[in-house]
Structures are given as C-alpha cells and as structure tokens.
Computed example of a mutant assay.
Amino acid sequence: MLSTEPHAESQERTALRQVTREILDRHLSAESALQTDRAGDFPSTTWRALGESGLLGIAADEELGGSGGTVGDAVATTEELARRLPSLAVDYVLSGMAMRMLTDPACGAISALLPQVASGEVVGSFGLSEPGAGTDLLGLRTRAELVDGQWHLHGQKTWISLAEEASVVFVLARTDPAPEDRRARGLSLIAVPTDQPGVQVRRVHLAGMRAAGTCEVFLDDALAPEASLVGERGKGLRIISQALDVERVLAAAISLGIGRAALDLALAYVKEREAFGRPIGALQAVQHPLADSLAEFHAARALVDACVTRIESGEQAISYAGMAKLVASETTARIVDRAMRAMGAMGLAEESAMQMYFRDARLQLFSPISNEMIRNLIAEDAGLPRSY
C-alpha cells in the first residue's frame, strides 16, 4: 500500500531509522515534543541519548572520534528527528556541521573538541549571520585581532540556533584585510568559549522552530586562545563552503521529515473524522489535495536521494544540493498547508502537532539559505548571467 515510507533502503539504513525512533520513543514522546516546542526548551536528555548512541557522531570518522556514518545516514537520522520535533533536527544538523569543520586537515589542537561534540558532552553552535550579513556573508563586520596569543573578537551575530546551550560558538570573523574584489579572503573561523564576560547571548523568540534556541550573540572583547582557529587563518569561508552541499541536503531532510509527519497525521485524521455519514477521506475534495501531496513528496524524496548519491560518490553537487533544498522546502510548505486544511480547526489546535509542523515548515523556505538565493545559484550554474 502506498505510504510515505522510503523505498529500497538498505537494511542498515532501515535499522538506523529504527534506532532513532526508539530513542525518541524513550526520551521524547509525541506529547513531550509538543510540550518542548511550546516551552521552547532544549531536549537535553534526548540530546545525551543521541550522543551515547553514536548518532551525534555520524558526521565524523571513527578515528577522529565520531561514529563513521555516511551522508545518507545523516539524512535518514535528520528526517526521523524532524518527524518528531523539527527543532531538534535543526540542532542536530548544526552539531554535525561543527564536526565537519573540525575534521579540516589544517585544524590543530582545536580538533580535540570533536569527540566531545560527537558524544554530546560539548555543544557547538555557529556564529555566521549578522544583522547586515546573512546571505551575503562577505558583508560581515565582526572582527578578530590576535594579541599576545589571544584572539580578541568584537561584533554581533544573529539568528544563531543552539547558542544558549553551546559551550563554544564557531564564529566567522575578519582577521585580515582584503581587497574589495576579494572579500572572501581574510575571514577566519574561531571557536569562542561562551562562558566569559565578553560573550552575551539573548534569546530571539520565533513563531517556528521554537525549541531550536535561536539567539543573538554579542561579542565585546570576547577572548579565544590562538589555537582556537579552525583550519587556516584567512580561509574560514573555504572551510564552510566545503560543507554547504551536506548542509543543504540535510535542510532538505528536515523538510522531508516535516512533510512526512504532516501527511501521515492528515491521512490518519481523514480516515476517522466523519461527516455526512462517512469518513471525510471518502470525499474527492479531500482526497485530491492529499494525493497531490503524496506524489510531490515522493518526487522530492527522489531528488534528495539522487543528491545524496552524488555527494557520496564524490561528484560535484552544489546545484543538486540547492535543488534538493529548494524543492523539498517548497513541497513541504504546500503539503502542510493542504494537511492543515484537511484537518480543519483541529489542525490549528495546540494539542495537535499539525500547528507545529505548519509553523516550522515556514522557516525552511529561507533557512539556512533563502530559496530565492538558491534559484540565483542554480540559474548561474546553468550559464545565465549573475543577477546579484
């Protein structure tokens, strides 16, 4: 029977999904997930369980302190987390990105953080976006100066998820001047400890992804040891860029998880809710939007799977990852809207997870990069003139 389950997955991948579900069932039930979202809390117990199971360490090889998973493994785990609590999936992706940064061959002593991040002992966040620099990271104003073996950082970062829980924030800052036509040069990635007077964190309360802990981070002579440099000085943007394909396909996986959960919830509801003496799922006006959603969902999954195959085979996947993120997020926004309409007022009730999926799906349209910018990149890769 047609369902939202993935098809033709390996036994190992299916088992990985099952392990993820079992952890969630033990530590974060569907009811607890709604309560966590409502309160905007970080599910610390679940996070530790994910670390103990090795799921947090998928992004890094075993010899580096991780658990040696593939990109496909990370996609499957992310999707399962997003089905239960999308905010948790966002934090999971951020943690995996931190580990990918720490695997850079140029990392020195700071790479010792990797096993601690993989176990959940240390929580790492990313300080990239600023009030005047989001999609255009080259416009950032945060500065870092090396003085007597210490980095001194000044600036402000915004829309930084997981910052309240983080022991360390990986901050992209300008460490060296660069010519106007080479602004990507001179940007460095520095691991900044949060437990110090020079770092202030302020929560930003969003309508969606409430439990992801989105914050502003203020750096007022924040200090970090010289060895906190991640990779080579002045090449921080290169390190980040190397992981963007994975980040975007994982963002697509978050959307798949949200869309799948919303679709499953709506299908179950219309089979039980009766009107005019029969289930509303027997009405064509209800069936067709859900049928469209099933077709579009599986098309989006196929694109994500194709992108994963390219990344794992070592092929260039910049545009494919962008397309996967674009299609999955736009598809999910439509799916959740249709699913909520099928459920009527119950879809908007606080006791229903549908309202959470509806709110959280909106963020995926412009995070971690806006779909408008993704379209620009795809068009440029197709040989059209740059439009920005």
Results as ranks from 00 to 15, higher is better:
Ser3Ala: 15
His7Gln: 15
His7Glu: 10
Ala15Trp: 05
Gln18Ser: 04
Val19Phe: 01
Thr20Trp: 12
Arg26Lys: 10
Ala30Val: 05
Glu31Lys: 08
Ala33Leu: 08
Ala39Pro: 00
Ala39Gln: 10
Pro43Gly: 00
Pro43Ser: 07
Thr46Arg: 07
Glu63Ile: 00
Gly65Gln: 06
Gly65Leu: 09
Ser67Cys: 00
Gly68Ile: 01
Thr70Leu: 09
Thr77Gln: 08
Ser87Cys: 01
Gly96Met: 05
Arg100Trp: 04
Met101Ile: 07
Gly108Lys: 06
Ile110Cys: 14
Ser111Ile: 02
Ser111Gln: 05
Leu114Phe: 02
Pro115Asn: 09
Pro115Asp: 02
Glu121Asn: 05
Gly124Ser: 11
Leu128His: 12
Glu130Gly: 01
Pro131Gly: 08
Leu138Arg: 11
Leu140Gly: 07
Leu140Trp: 05
Thr142Asp: 06
Gln150Val: 15
Leu153Ile: 07
Lys157Cys: 04
Trp159His: 11
Ser161Gln: 11
Ser161Asp: 05
Leu162Pro: 00
Val169Ile: 14
Leu172Tyr: 03
Leu172Asp: 06
Thr175Val: 06
Pro177Asp: 13
Pro177Ser: 12
Glu180Leu: 14
Asp195Gln: 12
Val199Leu: 05
Val199Trp: 14
Gln200Ser: 12
Val201Leu: 11
Arg202Asn: 02
Arg203Ala: 14
Val204Met: 11
Val204Tyr: 05
Met209Gln: 09
Arg210Val: 03
Arg210Ile: 03
Ala211Ser: 13
Gly213Phe: 02
Leu219Gly: 08
Val230Gly: 11
Gly231Asn: 11
Arg233Pro: 04
Ala251Tyr: 01
Ala251Ser: 10
Leu256Thr: 09
Leu265Ala: 13
Leu265Cys: 09
Leu265Met: 06
Ala266Met: 15
Val270Leu: 14
Lys271Gln: 13
Glu272Val: 07
Glu274Ile: 01
Ala275Met: 09
Gly277Tyr: 12
Ala282Cys: 13
Gln284Gly: 03
Gln284Trp: 09
Ala285Met: 13
Val286Ile: 09
Gln287Arg: 14
Pro289Asn: 15
Leu290Phe: 02
Asp292Ser: 03
His298Pro: 08
Arg301Lys: 07
Val304Trp: 13
Ala306Leu: 03
Val308Thr: 00
Gly314Ala: 15
Tyr320Gly: 06
Met323Lys: 03
Leu326Gln: 15
Val327Gly: 01
Ala333Gln: 12
Asp337Trp: 11
Arg341Pro: 00
Ala342Tyr: 03
Ala345Gly: 00
Met354Asn: 14
Gln355Arg: 08
Tyr357Trp: 14
Phe358Leu: 10
Ala361Thr: 14
Met373Lys: 15
Ile378Asn: 15
Pro385Trp: 12
Pro385Glu: 09
Arg386Val: 05
